[in-house]
């Protein structure tokens, strides 16, 4: 059986792929970056653009055994003032973060490519609970995924499950690329992708539907839920107002 991981070349996806290989799973590692994929020992690499119209079919064609688990981790962001981020970048965020996982899930199910106990795992964002001024289209794409995870569960065959992961800031290139501040102290506060990956896999084994990697993440989600006003204003000040040029 196969564990499929998208966005496996870097950051959280790579950490998840390495952890799954360590557990003895056969991993199909997907990313745009072929060179980085080649460095993951023990994975079957598959380099292509997930927003291509035939993306789902490319995955199905590459599968040697049914999907035991698919982790949709590939994602991009774009931070800055909503009106300053190019329209095509907003569209690309929606296409990669939201449309691609939905299309792939529908196609895998329609093609009967999943094992009877397959897990469908979507990497969302803590922003579902807090909002994300300065990354409006990113937040939208991740809220779409979170909703999709919970609706999907209702139509999945008995035995299959769907899970949404809500990570906070991670010590990855992704976070560094989009954050307003990458000072040493800020970077040190971010969770390491290895730690997040380990927590995510444990939660998946326990069949948790909503997965918060670590207590800090859970606490932030809780705060966003009960105090949306103050949390929103804090994020506006700490993120949005400190962003100058758009970061794509």
């Amino acid at each position: 059986m196969t564990t499929v991981i998208t966005g496996a070349a870097n950051g959280l996806g790579r950490a998840l792929a390495l952890a799954c290989i360590e557990r003895g799973e056969s991993v199909l590692a997907i990313d745009l970056d072929a060179a980085a994929l080649a460095e993951i020992d023990g994975a079957q690499p598959l380099a292509f653009d997930l927003t291509a119209p035939d993306a789902a079919q490319s995955i199905i064609a590459a599968l040697e055994t049914p999907v035991a688990c698919i982790i949709h981790c590939a994602g991009i962001s774009g931070t800055g003032r909503f009106e300053d981020i190019p329209a095509e970048h907003h569209a690309r965020i929606m296409a990669l973060n939201f449309t691609a996982p939905v299309q792939i899930t529908a196609a895998l199910l329609a093609a009967n490519a999943c094992a009877p106990t397959a897990k469908h795992v979507f990497v969302g964002s803590l922003s579902t609970f807090t909002g994300y001024p300065g990354a409006t289209s990113y937040a939208a794409s991740k809220d779409g995924l979170s909703s999709f995870t919970h609706s999907l569960r209702k139509s999945l065959p008995r035995g299959m499950s769907s899970h949404c992961v809500y990570p906070g800031p991670l010590r990855t290139d992704h976070a560094a690329r989009y954050a307003p501040d990458n000072s040493e102290a800020t970077v040190a506060r971010r969770q390491s992708p290895e730690e997040a990956a380990a927590l995510i896999l444990t939660a998946m084994d326990r069949r948790r539907r909503a997965i918060f990697p670590g207590w800090k993440t859970r606490a932030f989600a809780f705060a966003g839920r009960i105090l949306p006003g103050p949390v929103g204003r804090t994020l506006r000040q700490s993120l949005f107002e400190t962003l100058k040029e758009p970061k794509l």
């Binding site: 909503f82 909002g131 300065g134 409006t136 937040a139 794409s141």
Partner: peptide
């Protein structure tokens, strides 16, 4: 997703 967009854009 639209709802999430509205929430963040409102803050922006």
């Amino acid at each position: 997703a639209l709802s999430g967009a509205a929430r963040s854009l409102r803050l922006e």
